[in-house]
Design a protein around this nucleic acid. Structure first.
Lengths: 345, 345
DNA sequence: GTGAAAGCGCTAACAA
DNA sequence: TTGTTAGCGCTTTCAC
């Protein structure tokens, strides 16, 4: 099979090879319309022997439909986003739709560029992280004439559809749970990322949740770069040296939380008796730590799946059209071993 | 700017809007050929006002060149692969080339399907993980008429170009280092993945390295699924209960190694005195553990960068053509805190 | 059940 | 510097 040809094969080549019109070959290759079993087999055989691979570029241009879904996320290093991608991939698996990923590095200008490039492929839909975009980005999304699903965050107004969780609420609920356990002197640690709106909203919700009970964050620290686990260690040590009276530490993500937890265990400090801890994301990765960090699941995979389903139903590539265009999922708080304070007496 | 139009805009629309031929508009939008500053500005203004986004589908078909690079990897959950992707992304950043990712889940049939779909977009190059592929996959790659870079593994013969490390050698060198430190009773733990050829080769190399010194692996265990950290814990406990005489544990990846390390620390077992440990990959994520696991860097980012550079130089999209088509990188062994045995006496 | 003609939106090549 | 013409490889539409 197959000969080493410089020029890629065309429908024409297959047509020639089996004495059937290009049109019919095309029909066979797409399982479209009625084709007799006989010609069908001949065509398939010829295509296989030649090693023909259809040209989607030409196909898409002619049919005016592109089976691509643009997926735009801030980062691939964060673990969180590959998981969303997995959800999307999985849901799109058995459809003709193919996700194409673009990475923005949390930069609005880059988001704009990436979106522009993706739209130039005329995808059938866009799944994009977050609700905050530059005006140009919003304009492009609004005018693309295709379904747009903004994911991961629902604190705001979507351009079109939206699936995610309320990070503000996540922060508030965590604050409530912490206070309910009787902790009162609370420190916060997170990333120094003004453009990570979800982390910001979580922080705001958290502050707000404390404020309702008249409590204020007593110390805070922000980091950037480096291994999150190591940073969590360092920052925790520094914060406790600076503010020894703290009895709870809220981390904006599980990795730094885990670093803090490991350091506290090292120091022989009683967790959650002397100090309680909580992170955010519910990363599976961390199951297996000496103690399970309290955390709140961010529903990443489900978000991916749902977003993909919305796009599918918009395009009409599925029967069950019933996918709501705005979905706020409810994250669950896991207390793990670091939030349930042992009752005094 | 921009009106909500159902039909996407075409060059024609821009042409009409600014009274300049489609051809010239096209030239402006691609910075091609000489265009007077005046028309240039008019065109740009019109395009911006309308919110025109070029149609790459049509452009690629007409120009017979597609600025896409297909990247085919087994998984997105593994951390290792997103890092390779980051390397590719970074290198392709300032070129017109765009990576498009396909995931195979370690399944040869899926690899075949994914490759077929990617090739149908007529990408300018393919970067694909591993050297082991089905016959059909090899045929497609061989006949595509574009640069093909097989990455991550160099134990075998590439179809075209190849960048990676020798996993066999990695296993051997680790074995050598372990023996040199005086460990003699060695256990192995890894994933139960017959299709992960790199892990297999590492294991073979390791066995071989030990064999040269007349040493055999005394116990082994394989897992699948679940949190690697948790699995590392469990398996380590089970193995040491089963084979209490072991004085070294080699893990096929850092995550299970870290799980093992955490368990041993919990138990108060002397590492690396009583038992030594080593993993593989050099994942940055784990910096910050109470003790640093010995590991061997798998050069992931560099592999991505180099593969991208090979594709670029093949396409002629870069000046420095000098990128060798076969590169075996040399991973460094980090002893961390778990491999250097304290000398007796 | 099969084929012929037209054209998707752009760019290469050439003409002016 | 700008415009015209002729496709790129497929699919739509309509005819047979």
């Amino acid at each position: 099979m197959t000969t080493t040809s410089k020029r890629p094969l065309t429908l024409r080549d297959v047509s020639d090879a089996c004495g059937v019109s290009e049109m019919t070959v095309s029909r066979v290759l797409r399982n479209r319309g009625d084709v007799s079993a006989a010609t069908r087999d001949r065509v398939l055989a010829a295509a296989k022997t030649l090693g023909y691979v259809p040209n989607q570029i030409a196909g898409s241009l002619a049919s005016q439909r592109v089976n691509l879904v643009a997926v735009i996320i801030p980062s691939l290093s964060n673990m969180v986003f590959p998981e969303v991608l997995n959800g999307i991939n999985q849901t799109l698996e058995d459809t003709p739709l193919q996700p194409v990923v673009g990475v923005t590095d949390y930069l609005p200008e880059k988001e704009e560029r990436v979106l522009y490039e993706m739209l130039s492929w005329r995808p059938s839909g866009v799944i994009i992280a977050g609700l905050e975009h530059s005006d140009a980005t919003r304009a492009m999304l609004g005018n693309a004439g295709i379904p747009v699903v903004e994911i991961m965050d629902t604190d705001g107004k979507p351009i079109d559809a939206m699936v995610g969780i309320s990070h503000r609420r996540a922060g508030r609920e965590t604050a409530r749970a912490i206070l309910k356990e009787g902790y009162e002197h609370i420190g916060f640690m997170g990333t120094k990322m003004p453009l990570d709106h979800r982390a910001r909203k979580r922080f705001e919700g958290f502050t707000e949740g404390l404020a309702k009970a008249g409590v204020e964050i007593e110390d805070r620290a922000f980091y950037s770069g480096g291994s999150a686990l190591a940073k969590g260690r360092e920052m925790t040590q520094e914060m406790l040296e600076r503010s020894p009276d703290l009895d709870f530490l809220y981390y904006s993500n599980d990795m730094i939380g885990a670093g803090g937890l490991l350091w506290l265990i090292d120091q022989g400090i009683d967790v959650p008796g002397t100090i309680g801890l909580a992170g955010f994301n519910g990363v599976e990765l961390l199951q297996g730590l000496p103690r399970q960090l309290a955390t709140m699941d961010s529903c990443r995979r489900q978000i991916g799946q749902t977003a993909a389903r919305i796009v599918m139903s918009d395009i009409g590539d599925t029967q069950d059209e019933g996918e709501p265009r705005q979905q706020t999922l409810t994250p669950t708080l896991s207390y793990g071993d670091t939030l349930r304070r042992r009752r005094k007496g």
